[in-house]
Structure formats: structure tokens, C-alpha cells
Design a protein around this nucleic acid. Structure first.
Length: 801
RNA sequence: GCGGAUAUGGCGGAACUGGCAGACGCGCUAGAUUCAGGUUCUAGUGAAGAUUCCUUCAUGCAGGUUCGAUUCCUGUUAUCCGCACCA
């Protein structure tokens, strides 16, 4: 029979809470460890097995650190602003506040039932005034430092959600939330100037311990490229067209220019253009396409020649035609390019279609067939001819351009400024007042928080206005600067806002004077280890690193980077091997597992099911295996002897297990740690009894994974105190060494026998023993040994003829 | 197209810096317990051939380096993830 997990788990959850053993102490005298997991969005569906996996990893580390004597901060909170809650409110008429509170209560209950060792005295809810007051405060600081600006732009607009979305939120031309098609719309948008921090965010990566692929993804996201800005004279406009290129070395090969259809230079000089009506028609066509279509339907290049004008190549002096085409984007570089058809495939396709010259300037490819992007000697390039290296040619060209005033070295980033407003109710109000006399005026700091007004109607306005626009008492106010009548901004912040600084608040969650005191930040910052999903390593992490770095620059946090270390767990797939989703009906509810088998079994299985960093499918059978394992652990109670040292036959294995499990817990290898414990348990069963010392070690090692059952057994057998705060195990390196080694013997690299030798035997002794082995002896008989290889303690190999 | 990763039994996965491939678990087979189902226990379990020793083949595919390769190198295929006309 199994053990009574229901009673035991409840009992220990209550005891831990009553004793406050997981409460972090703000005590600078103690060595600290700050373990952070991504706080959940409290959805109506309740917890997902993915949450359990995400938290179980650092849960093990946090519990181990406590046992090692660290003062551990392992906090949890709720990232509760956001669309799903608001949409639910719209559908049901229940206020988002109530929906959020209910969901948080459910999540809290479920998290507690999983037995996580969170510090429940530091819980954060991003939708609480005492929290979002500081989100607004940081926003105003950014405003004060010129990092907030407003611009009228074409934006991604979701007609279904009636909100403007950032590029990040509208990838693939579909709304991130409702998956309807995005359309382009002109809107006033609030931006955070994250691009000003591009280099700092890049440099910051040099000193942090993120998994290499996480670092790489952030580097690619920021997308720094170096090249040059080049100015092309357009005589008819009396103006220079500025382009950005990463290949200034190919400048002699430029045979045409392409501008993005929206390029404003066209409007300024429409009188000089003889076919402006054609241009307008093309523009109208492009406006219908979403950015997604523009990139997807790019197989066939389209465009219109700008008639009546030409540009001048600044190095060759040649007159070249100008086109508009939607393969050039307004949002990157200068919105115009110099086209080098011989060495850029996109330009090549365009040139072929429009019958434009293709001039080879780098030897090595066959430009009759396709563009050549490789390296080679320069030709047809005036002063660059004969130059063999790309970097040398680029350098020469840039100094030439600089000298002539025709261009200069430049840097571009793929990362764009962060569109920071939503036309929604359930978010932090943007604390800005629009005054007809003073313009944009920040709400004074002492008036924070700017509270979200209570409303009954959460429907967005028809033209995409925020629901707040309908609340007259909120909108109408007086200007803090001139005292005249003014109107409040009615947009709210995006969901990313609250999560951009929450890890700082955990250090000092109840402070009503500051977002967190410098003293406490000095102690707790940075986060020592941050674990979360791979899907958050670009957006959330870059946004939060940006906010943190800004706070550092204005002297509000003590260090540059918020996270010292970052790891990411793999997805749990459905039993069918597909990603879990409601539509597929393959979602596993963790609460059912807790009800049926207990939290210890659930946690053990999730950590055992495979490589923590990789995706693995759920298996009901696998859960049973872990249930069986813990039941077998429970049976140790009946096998206990009075002896209080390791038995001789197990001594080495115990020391090895302590070492292996301790190391594996540090490197996300929970699956092999648990496998080691399973193997050790099998060895104990083979022996038929367990000593007190053996059981004490076994329970300690297993505790971070299965805390309830181990705590109960600890108490039952009178080991003293609470296991959660008992010291971690130590091992003796000398005891790990076996007195005899089993050494494989190979002949020509093939395993032929295994011999047993003393651990301290020297090379000759081992080789002699190997030769004496009956099987080896018969195979060596009559052959010549060409070479004898002995890898100490590992293997012997005879090469024979 | 670019960038990152992965590929090992029927399944999830082990294998340290190049040194006994398949730890641990699931599943399966046989037996014991049981009225039966479930549970539990014992033994076996990569494939093929020999069934008393064993032998050969096996880590996506094709080569290479090496006494020796899942591990290193070259090429190739497939899958997953991220970015995508980035100038």
C-alpha cells in the first residue's frame, strides 16, 4: 500500500508556513541567494503542468541552498494586467478586479498545494495600486530623461481586439492574442526609446552567465550591423537621398536606387515627379498589404519607376534611375537603399524584372545566373580595383566618402523603439496630461498612483479608443503646470510594463516611499539565477534589462545587469507529442495529478521525465513509475536498523550519490539526479535493510524534489528538527574511490574481456593481469603485440598483428 | 534565405575532458501472490546468429582522424526553435 500523501502533504505545508522557514531575511550579515522564476499570468484556466516544471527547477536549487546555509529569496507574484482578463470581463460583465482576485486566489492555492518553498510574505500583484504606482513612477523618470516620445505612425492594428500592437506582438501578421489579421493604421503612439540602449544591452551580455543560445538570441534580436550611410544627389529634388548599406565596398556596382513607397521625400517633391499618380496608385496597393504579406508575397518583386528624376552615384558620377518598391521597408535604415544587383539577390531579381544594368564589381561568381555575395578581387571599381579583401575595400570606401562629404560610417539595429501604449482598460494608466497650453505634462510624482477608475463598461471605443476615454471624471483635469483645463491620456501601458521591474520589488515589497530601498537592493541584487521559458528570452528579458539599466544610469539600482544567470526549461508536450493546447484537447491538469498521486509524485515525475531544457511528452505511465518509486522510499521505514553509519557494502555508493546528486542539482540535470537516487534505492533493497545514516542521507538528497514525504519520514524516525532547514550532505572524495577497479581489456579497440585489479596497481601490473586473463591470453597466443595502451583506471588496449 | 539547436532500443532518456553504448524509468515477456482486475515481488528484455561458452552488427546517412569515435573533423539528410526582402 502507498503512503497517505493527502494528510502528509497538507500537514507539512501548514507546518512550513507556521514556522516561516521560507521567509527571506533582510540580513546583510548572511550570504544570500536570489532565485527568480517568471511570475505567472493568473489565467482563468488555472495552473498548467508547464508552470510546475518552470518552478520545480529552481525550487530544487532554492531548497538545497537553504540547507547549505544560504539566506534564500525565492519569491512569487502575479503579472495580472492583460487582455485575457479584460476580454473575460467584457464577455461576462464581471469586473477585471474581481476576475483577477479570483484567479490569483486559485493560483495561490494550487501553488501552495504543489509545496513550493516560495516566500509568501513578498507576493506581488502588478495590478495593485501600491505596485503600479512605481511602474508609473519609472515611466515618468524615463519621460523626464527623454526616453519617452510620441509619434504619429503607421501601426499594427488589430480590428478584433481594437488595439495597436508592437511589431513584437504582431509577428506573422496575426494578432498575438486573438490571431486575427493585422491591418495598418495611422495612430499616435507612445514609444520608449529602447534603441538608445542598444549598445548597452549588447555590452551587458558580456559579463552575464546566460546559456549561450539565450545570449545569441538576444544579440540577434538587437541586430547590430555596421556599415555606412551614403548620400546620393537627386538633382531634380535639390536634395540628397540618404541610404544605409553594410556593403559600401560595392558602391561602384550601384545601378539604381529603391525607396520605400511611404518615403516622404516623394511627397515633398511631387511636382518634380511626372508620374506621381502612378506612385499614389502603387502606394494604395501596398497599404492594403500587411507587413506580413509584404514579406511573404515577395517572390515576385513589384515596383514603380520614379519618372522625371535620376540620382547620381557619388563615386562613379553615373546617373542612375530611382524606383519605389515594397521590398524596401520604411522602418529599417533610412527607408531607401542603393541597389547593387550583381551582389545582392533581392536587387538582382528586381533588376532582371525591370531590365536594369547589372555591373559586376567583385569577381568570383557568375552574375549571368545570380547575385554573388562572396569575397573576391574588386573590378570596375576605380580606386578600389584589385583590392582583395572586403574589409579593406570597405575601409577605403568609407574614408573616401567621409573625405568627400558623401557619407560616413554608420551603425544600425534591427531592434525598434518600443510601442508602449494600448487602447485598453486593464493596464497601468499612462500618467501624462495633455494641456492645450503646455502640451504634454507629466502627472506630478506626489499624485501617483494615477488610479485606474472604476468603470462598468470595458468595451473599447469604436475607433480603437481606450475605454477610459469614456470616463469624463478621469479624462477632465487641470494642468499641473498652468492650472488650466486639460485632458488626461487615456491609453494604458502594455502587459510587458509590470514585468519589467518586478524582480526589484521583491527585495522590498512593502516599501511605500520608494520602489525599493537602495540598502535592500544592494543586498539582494542581482538575481543570482533566473529561470523561465525560452519564449521570454528576447522580449521580456530585453525590456526588463533596459528598464534596469536605465534605473542604474539614474542611480536607483546598484548594479548594471539585473540577472547574473539565466536558464530556460523545455516545454511539456501533450501525451501525443504535440504542443499542449485546448483546441487539441491534450492538456494535462496538474491538479488532477496532485489529487491522485500527490505533489511529491508530480514534482518527481516532471523533473525526471527528461532533459530539463528539452521538450518532452507527458506520459501517464511515467507518473506511475515515480509513484512506485516514492512508495518504495516509504517502505524504508520498515527496513530501518539501529546502526548509525554507512554499511560497508554501501559506503562508497552513498558518497558517490551525494556527489552526483549535489552536482546534478546545480546543472539542471534533475533527471539523472533522480535516476541516481532510484539506483541507490535499488541497492538498499538488494541489501535488505537501511541504516539510520543511510536513510538520513537519502532523505536529505531527495528532499528538494519530494519535500513532504521526506520531511514526514525524517520526523517519524526521530532525526531531529525540520528537514527543510537541516544541513545538506557532505561526501568524502577518498571514500568514493573503489579498492578494486574493473578494467575493460580491448584487442585492436574491441572489447574482449574485463579484468579486476587493485586501485593502486601500476601500469605493468595491470598489463600483466590483462595478459594473464584466459580469454585474452588465448587471443594473444601466436600474435605479435605492436602496442600496449593503458589509460590509468580506464582501460587496456593491445594492438596486435 | 539567415541564425541557433537536435538526431542513440518499442518509448522518455543516460554516457565525465576520445576509453565497457543503452544508466534510470516506462513498456513488454515469463513466473509468484490474487476468485478476478489492480497492486506488489522475482527473473529477463538493442538486433541477428549460436543457445554450453560466445560471435557479428548497431548511436540519422556517407566519408575522415585515431590503438580506440555517440563524443573530434568534412560533407549530407531530416526535424524543431528563433528571425525573416535587415540593405
Amino acid at each position: 500500500m502507498g503512503y497517505d500523501f493527502k494528510t502528509i502533504e497538507k500537514k507539512w505545508q501548514d507546518r512550513w508556513e507556521a514556522a516561516g522557514v521560507f521567509h527571506a531575511q533582510d540580513d546583510p550579515g548572511k550570504k544570500k541567494f536570489y532565485a527568480l522564476v517568471e511570475f505567472p499570468y493568473p489565467s482563468g484556466a488555472g495552473m498548467h503542468v508547464g508552470h510546475i516544471k518552470a518552478y520545480s527547477g529552481l525550487e530544487v536549487v532554492a531548497r538545497k541552498r537553504r540547507m547549505e546555509g544560504y539566506n534564500v529569496l525565492f519569491p512569487i507574484g502575479f503579472d495580472a494586467f492583460g487582455l485575457p482578463t479584460e476580454n473575460y470581463a467584457i464577455k461576462t460583465g464581471i469586473h477585471p478586479r474581481k476576475v483577477t482576485d479570483d484567479n490569483i486566489a486559485r493560483f495561490t492555492d494550487q501553488l501552495k498545494r504543489a509545496g513550493f518553498s516560495f516566500d509568501w510574505t513578498r507576493v506581488i500583484d502588478t495590478t495593485r495600486e501600491e505596485y503600479y504606482k512605481w511602474t508609473q513612477w519609472i515611466f515618468l523618470k524615463m519621460f523626464e530623461h527623454g526616453l519617452v516620445f510620441r509619434d504619429k505612425t503607421q501601426v499594427n492594428y488589430c480590428p478584433s481586439c481594437k488595439v495597436v500592437l508592437s511589431n513584437e506582438d504582431s509577428q506573422g501578421g496575426k494578432c498575438d492574442i486573438c490571431h486575427s489579421d493585422i491591418v495598418q493604421k495611422s495612430k499616435d503612439v507612445w514609444y520608449l526609446r529602447i534603441t538608445a540602449y542598444a549598445d548597452k544591452l549588447l555590452q551587458g551580455l558580456e559579463h552575464v552567465d546566460y546559456l549561450p543560445n539565450i545570449k545569441q538570441q538576444q544579440i540577434n534580436w538587437i541586430g547590430r550591423s555596421t556599415g555606412a550611410f551614403v548620400n546620393f544627389e537627386i538633382p531634380a529634388f535639390g536634395e540628397k537621398l540618404r541610404v544605409y548599406t553594410t556593403r559600401p565596398d560595392t558602391l561602384f556596382g550601384v545601378t539604381f536606387m529603391v525607396m520605400a513607397p511611404e518615403h516622404d521625400m516623394l511627397d515633398r517633391h511631387k511636382d518634380s515627379i511626372t508620374n506621381f499618380d502612378q506612385i499614389q496608385a502603387y502606394r494604395a496597393e501596398c497599404a492594403k498589404k500587411t507587413e506580413f504579406e509584404r514579406t511573404q508575397l515577395a517572390k515576385d518583386k513589384t515596383g514603380v519607376k520614379v519618372e522625371g528624376v535620376y540620382a547620381v552615384n557619388p563615386v562613379s558620377g553615373k546617373k542612375i534611375p530611382v524606383y519605389i518598391s515594397d521590398y524596401v521597408m520604411m522602418g529599417y535604415g533610412t527607408g531607401a537603399i542603393m541597389a547593387v544587383p550583381a551582389h545582392d539577390q533581392r536587387d538582382y531579381e528586381f533588376a532582371k524584372k525591370f531590365g536594369i544594368d547589372i555591373v559586376e564589381v567583385i569577381k568570383g561568381g557568375d552574375i549571368a545566373k545570380e547575385a554573388y555575395a562572396g569575397e573576391g578581387p574588386m573590378v570596375n571599381s576605380g580606386f578600389l580595383d584589385g583590392c582583395g579583401s572586403k574589409s579593406e575595400a570597405i575601409e577605403k570606401m568609407i574614408s573616401y566618402l567621409t573625405e568627400k562629404g558623401a557619407g560616413e560610417k554608420g551603425v544600425q539595429y534591427k531592434m525598434k523603439d518600443w510601442a508602449f501604449n494600448r487602447q485598453r482598460y486593464w493596464g497601468e494608466p499612462i500618467p501624462i496630461i495633455h494641456c492645450p497650453h503646455c502640451g504634454m505634462v507629466p502627472v506630478p510624482y506626489e499624485q501617483l498612483p494615477l488610479k485606474l477608475p472604476q468603470v462598468k463598461d470595458f468595451q473599447p471605443g469604436e475607433d480603437g479608443e481606450s475605454p477610459l476615454a469614456k470616463v469624463a471624471e478621469f479624462v477632465n483635469c487641470t494642468c499641473p503646470r498652468c492650472g488650466g483645463a486639460a485632458k488626461r491620456e487615456t491609453d494604458t501601458m502594455p502587459q510587458w510594463a509590470g514585468s519589467s521591474w518586478y524582480f526589484l520589488r521583491y527585495a522590498d515589497p512593502h516599501n511605500d516611499k520608494e520602489f525599493a530601498s537602495m540598502d535592500k537592493l544592494r543586498y539582494w541584487n542581482p538575481v543570482d539565477w533566473y529561470n523561465g521559458g525560452m519564449e521570454h528570452v528576447t522580449r521580456h528579458m530585453i525590456y526588463s534589462r533596459f528598464w534596469h539599466r536605465f534605473l542604474y544610469d539614474i542611480g536607483c539600482v546598484p548594479n548594471e545587469e539585473p540577472y547574473a544567470k539565466r536558464t530556460a526549461q523545455g516545454l511539456i508536450l501533450g501525451p501525443d507529442g504535440d504542443k499542449m493546447s485546448k483546441t487539441k484537447g491534450n492538456v494535462v491538469d496538474p491538479n488532477e495529478v496532485v489529487d491522485a498521486c500527490g505533489a511529491d509524485v508530480l514534482r518527481t515525475y516532471i523533473l525526471f521525465m527528461g532533459d530539463y531544457e528539452k521538450a518532452a511528452p507527458w506520459s501517464e505511465k511515467g507518473v506511475n513509475g515515480c509513484k512506485r518509486f516514492l512508495n518504495r522510499v516509504w517502505q524504508l521505514n520498515d527496513m530501518l536498523t539501529d546502526a548509525d553509519e554507512y554499511s560497508p557494502e554501501l559506503e562508497s555508493k552513498m558518497h558517490k550519490a551525494v556527489k552526483k546528486v549535489s552536482e546534478d542539482y546545480e546543472t539542471l540535470k534533475y533527471n539523472t539526479a533522480i535516476a541516481t537516487l532510484m539506483a541507490l534505492l535499488n541497492d538498499i533493497y538488494d541489501k535488505g535493510s537501511v541504516t539510520r545514516a543511510e536513510l538520513r542521507t537519502f532523505l536529505t538528497l531527495l528532499n528538494p524534489v519530494a519535500p513532504h514525504i521526506t520531511e514526514e519520514m525524517w520526523e517519524m524516525n526521530g532525526f531531529g528538527g525540520m528537514l527543510a532547514v537541516s544541513p545538506w550532505c557532505t561526501y568524502d572524495e577518498d571514500k568514493i574511490k573503489d579498492s578494486t577497479l574493473s578494467i575493460p581489456v580491448q584487442i585492436c579497440g574491441k572489447l574482449r574481456s574485463v579484468i579486476s585489479v587493485d586501485a593502486d596497481a601500476d601500469k605493468q601490473q595491470v598489463i600483466d593481469t590483462a595478459k594473464a586473463d584466459s580469454k585474452i591470453a588465448s587471443m594473444l597466443n601466436g600474435k605479435t603485440i605492436v602496442k600496449e595502451i593503458y589509460v590509468p583506471g580506464k582501460m587496456v588496449n593491445f594492438v596486435i598483428k
